[in-house]
Design a protein around this nucleic acid. Structure first.
Lengths: 142, 142
DNA sequence: CAATAGTTTAGAATGATTATAATATAAATT
DNA sequence: AATTTATATTATAATCATTCTAAACTATTG
């Protein structure tokens, strides 16, 4: 639950001008108790419902990518045609419910630490992501 | 290293007619010692180089998807704009080299078993995938 | 060998994302 | 506080991977 003035600093601190559009998108994304997952399409719909002034789709794309680059969002790719963004930027893993197409955050109680015994020589690990796909019992298994 | 007649049975057994195009694609994908990763684009290029007769791009898409549906290929999504297919259909994880855009298979020596302590109620796990992104030390970290 | 069911094809359609370039706004400078 | 400069927004066009279409072709069945 952040205030408008906090979003202004947040944006300024990372070199982004605090425009009306960016502040509105901050409000929609970060003025909440819980983190959540969304697609660009979800966000665009949300804004058009809850904001009297229209924000151009191009601006929504630009802003989401800027926020991702600045580390305010993480992108989670489920399949080539489904890309989600996550306002939870801490290290964590996901369940993906194939019945409902919903992403669910895992916490450390649910998935233990991934044990990487060997890495590629000369390389540094930049991230470790686990995706657990789940479906109802009666569904076809992949 | 499979022979043409083996591909014919393989296709017949899964209800796919052994057409010239499918057999050629089988040869390119499965007539090898080692499994590998490819994109649709890689495959299309490979075929146009090594096959005198052209295979339509639509057929390449159809065939790759049919092979995936029949379980001969696995799809690995790295980001919304990069989708790879893997001829290794056993359970395994991947390193993704952000410098070279190359996928590398992990074996159990490299990544230990993922410990899933809790699952979503009423759901069955259909797959568990780990993706370890790596990059040279001097690269920017995400 | 004829019938039919499935496959391939080129090209068109789709749809998500990105580019463009004119306009608007924010910040810096005077 | 007016002017200049840099940056952001916008509508629209362009792009590009993928999917669709429906006509022509091929494999299989009887």
């Amino acid at each position: 639950m952040l205030k408008n003035s906090e979003f202004v600093s947040k944006l300024r601190n990372s070199g982004l001008r605090p425009t009306k559009q960016r502040l509105k998108i901050c409000e929609v994304l970060f003025n909440r108790d819980k983190t959540f997952h969304f697609t660009i399409n979800d966000l665009a719909k949300n804004i058009s419902k809850n904001f009297n002034k229209k924000i151009s789709l191009a601006t929504i794309y630009n802003t989401v990518h800027a926020f991702k680059d600045k580390g305010y969002l993480k992108e989670i790719t489920i399949s080539s045609d489904k890309s989600y963004f996550d306002t939870n930027i801490t290290k964590h893993h996901h369940f993906y419910d194939e019945d409902t197409n919903l992403l669910i955050d895992c916490n450390d109680n649910e998935i233990g630490k991934v044990n990487i015994k060997n890495n590629i020589t000369g390389k540094k690990i930049s991230s470790v992501e686990v995706l657990v796909r789940v479906a109802s019992d009666y569904q076809n298994q992949n």
